[in-house]
Each structure stands twice: as C-alpha cells, then as structure tokens.
C-alpha cells in the first residue's frame, strides 16, 4: 500500500502505463528470468523451425542409412555430412531427432495444458460463482482426482486408450484439469469478495458481464503462472510415459522416447543417444520454470517490493 505512494507522483508519468507494460518491465529486472526466456525462445523456435534447420528428416526412412548407425558425436557419415551429436542405432542423426522430438514434446505439453486450463477454468469458475452444492460436488471430484498420483492415472488411461499423440494429450488433460479447477476456484473466491465485484453488482451489471469482464481477468494471472510451470510438468510426464513405453508412437518419437531408446546403450559407452535428448529435456524444463517463477514473483503483490 505504501509502496504506491511514490509512484503516483503527478506529472512524473504522463504516459498511460498499461498493466502489461508494467509487468514486462518488472519481469525484465531479473537476469536469470531473462536467460530463461531466451532459452525458452530458443527451444520453441528450434522446435517450430525443425523442418527447416534439421540436417535430415528423422521420420523419413529413406534418408536413414543403417551403416551410419551408432556414430559418435562430430563423426562424419557416409553421405559426408557431420553428425554433430552422433547417430542412433538406426543411423538417425541425433540433432535432427532432438529437434523433431522437441516438437512432439512441446505439442503434447502445450496442448494438454491449454485443454486442461480451459476445462479447469470452466469448472473452477462455476464452483466459485454458484457455490453451494455445485461447489461441494465439484470440489469433491477434484479432491479425489488429486489424491491419485498423476502418473498412475495417466498409465491407466493410456492402457485403456492405446497409443497415439492424441491419446497422450487426452490422458495429460485428464490429470491436469483438477489443478486448474482448484487454483481458479481459490482465486475466484478471493476476488469475488473484493469491493469492485460488489460495485459491479451494485451497478446492476449482468452476471455474465461481471464474470467475463471483472472476475475472469483478475483470476487469470496466478493461473497463467501455474499453467507455465505445468507445461514443464506435462512435458516431463509425457517423457516418463514414453520412457515406460505407453506414450507416443515409435514413428513420432518425443524426447522421452529418444531417451528410452538410447537407454540400453548407456552401459556400452554410446552415451550420446540418451544424454543429448536428456539435456534438451532438462534445458526446456528449466527454462520454463525460470520464466514461470519470475512471473509468479512479479504477479504476487505480497512479494513485490
């Protein structure tokens, strides 16, 4: 409260500063977070541009040469191209495999988070807004869901659904929505009691308008933070599932899949097949977490200044 006093000095800031601009400036004050953001842009960028920048298309069997199998990093393949990160047992270029794997991992992580978020938002807002038995029933379901380990739920679902990227996304959405529902409900309950919501009620605005224009925008910030970090969780979870052999199909390997397939060669010295995808996975998750943590710090009014 006191911290705002200095900032409201008249004339000092004539330009209308949007909450977004303020957020961005505040975010940029942390070097680690900016590093995280840079890494994240790099990771997402290379995943998106994989078809353009990857030396070969790892899904195109015609391009693979089994004679190039198990080449160590920096070795030169039969076609004369350097395999910077080596090749796997099929002669697949690891760098290309990682770039494409990143695509799959991010696709699964982001889309399951978006779907989970949408579902959680709907359910959580309903629970907070209607209250009463609706709230009780919804929150009981959420509690039950959250009391099972996510990996277990996902394993069971995938065992029932079978393999496929869409199946993995369904399974991950199912394990995630409950987190969002709970977070949304908590924030919405707090926001709903604030005086600006009462003011909107007093101005006889419609319920829909109050929820859309007043309640929802103020519930979003903490949710976006949770979602960012949750993308990292989803990616890690997908990697685990793939590693256990119930995730994405072999034809479209994700990072987890690559790690799993290289695992058997770890002891015989061909470390690169597992380790490089592992590093890519680690960097992705760390970058997302760095950005998410900073967002949480900036958006949390209790920590600001």
């Amino acid at each position: 409260m006191t911290a705002t006093v200095g900032a409201t000095g008249q004339g000092a800031r004539a330009r209308a500063e949007t909450p977004m601009a303020r957020f961005a400036a505040e975010f940029a004050r942390s070097r680690t977070a900016m590093l995280g953001l840079l890494l994240m842009v790099l990771v997402v960028g290379s995943a998106l541009l994989a078809p353009l920048i990857a030396p070969q298309d790892p899904y195109d069997l015609a391009q693979l040469d089994i004679l190039d199998g198990m080449l160590a990093p920096l070795a030169e393949g039969g076609s004369g191209a350097t395999h910077w990160l080596g090749t796997d047992d099929q002669g697949r270029d690891m760098l290309s495999g990682i770039l494409y794997g990143l695509r799959t991992s991010l696709l699964v992580g982001v889309s399951s988070t978006v779907f989970g978020l949408a579902l959680g938002l709907l359910v959580g807002l309903s629970a907070a807004y209607f209250g009463g038995w609706v709230d009780t029933v919804i929150m009981r379901i959420v509690d039950i869901q959250l009391s099972f380990p996510a990996i277990l739920v996902a394993l069971i679902l995938l065992a029932l659904l079978g393999k496929g990227i869409d199946k993995v996304i369904i399974a991950l959405t199912t394990v995630q929505w409950a987190y969002y529902a709970r977070t949304v409900r908590g924030t919405a309950l707090v926001e709903r009691r604030k005086e600006y919501i009462e003011a909107a009620t007093c101005l006889a605005l419609s319920h829909g308008r109050i929820v859309r224009r007043h309640l929802l925008p103020n519930c979003l910030p903490p949710l976006i933070v949770v979602a960012t970090v949750q993308v990292a969780h989803a990616i890690a979870l997908e990697a685990t599932l793939s590693f256990l052999g119930v995730g994405v199909p072999v034809t479209q390997p994700s990072l987890g899949m690559l790690i799993a397939s290289g695992y058997q060669y770890m002891l015989s010295g061909e470390y690169w097949i597992s380790v490089f995808p592992g590093i890519a996975l680690l960097v992705t998750i760390v970058a997302i977490n760095l950005v998410g943590d900073r967002m949480r710090d900036v958006l949390n009014p209790r920590l600001s200044r």
Partner: peptide, 8 residues
C-alpha cells in the same frame, strides 16, 4: 495540491 513524489 498533492503530496509530492519523493523522486521529484
């Protein structure tokens, strides 16, 4: 008038 900003 207003309380002045400590920065200014």
């Amino acid at each position: 008038g207003m309380t002045p900003s400590l920065l200014d």
